[in-house]
């Protein structure tokens, strides 16, 4: 396991691995997005109370879910950065932050539009625990990116940002349990482990699964691409990059 851990942390190995994975991820993203969107928006039945507005969930639920998962990736990578000082972990975290921030933004906007039609005359409720904790997540992402950009020295930036990411990780269980610990305007989770099956009918559940896969593949694809860019930039003076560039030019 440690061998694998250190091997994955090696930049040339990671670069080659991602070159092989990226085409597959691109195909998987495209298929799951196209099929999931068409299925969810046109073929899945509409909800008995919300009519077609319920279709917002095919975007909102995966975006909100992965806005939290991506933050967990950043926090875990931050811990690896602080403890093992593996540069690649920091690059993965830095590459993930803008994607996570975008997912959070999508979740907030789609949620607000859904709320306006379902809750009544409001786009946003400042005192709602679920809405507020998700907004704080958005600011954590922005703060993480700003802190990363605020230092000239990459290693200093990595450590400062990793500490912020780890402090902010306390917000993740708060978002998840906000609808259970406190009363909230937001409904409880439809996607809660074993109860998932009971709360959403199969004909609506399967396109939702597919959209979750689509958001996951899309994140993985963008994360690999971003990390590769950051990797080439930070390793530009190393021999493996130079070799690769000369090989590429020769071919």
């Amino acid at each position: 396991m440690w061998v694998w851990f250190h091997k994955l942390g090696s930049p040339p190995y990671f670069y080659r691995l991602s070159s092989r994975l990226l085409p597959w991820l691109a195909v998987a993203t495209l298929i799951s997005f196209v099929v999931g969107t068409i299925w969810g928006l046109f073929y899945a039945p509409s909800d008995y109370q919300q009519a077609d507005t319920s279709r917002i969930m095919y975007i909102h639920v995966p975006a909100a879910m992965f806005s939290m998962s991506i933050y967990m990736v950043i926090a875990a990578a931050g811990a690896v950065t602080l403890i093992w000082r593996i540069k690649l972990a920091d690059l993965v975290a830095a590459a993930s932050a803008p994607i996570g921030a975008s997912y959070t933004f999508i979740a907030l906007i789609t949620g607000s539009l859904w709320g306006r039609t379902m809750w009544g005359d409001t786009y946003w409720e400042w005192t709602d625990p679920r809405l507020m904790s998700e907004l704080i997540l958005f600011f954590l992402y922005l703060g993480y990116m700003a802190l990363n950009a605020a230092f000239e020295d990459r290693r200093r930036a990595a450590r400062a940002a990793a500490v912020l990411a780890l402090v902010g990780v306390v917000n993740i269980p708060i978002i998840h349990y906000s609808v259970e610990w406190w009363t909230s305007l937001h409904q409880g989770s439809t996607t809660r482990g074993m109860q998932f099956a009971a709360t959403i009918y199969p004909s609506m559940r399967y396109p939702l699964y597919l959209m979750m896969l689509a958001f996951a593949f899309f994140y993985a694809q963008l994360m690999f691409k971003n990390t590769r860019c950051l990797l080439l930039e930070s390793e530009r003076n190393n021999s493996w990059v130079k070799e690769m560039v000369t090989q590429h030019d020769a071919a």
Binding site: S46, M57, T190, T199, I200, Y201
Partner: peptide
């Protein structure tokens, strides 16, 4: 002063809701 509706976590097509209501098994 104002009234908002709160949706719950159950999603189902209209036909299913109708049959659950009839059998009294509505969550």
């Amino acid at each position: 002063k104002d009234v908002l509706a709160k949706h719950d976590e159950n999603y189902m097509p209209p036909e299913v809701a109708a049959s659950l209501k009839k059998s009294g098994a509505m969550p």
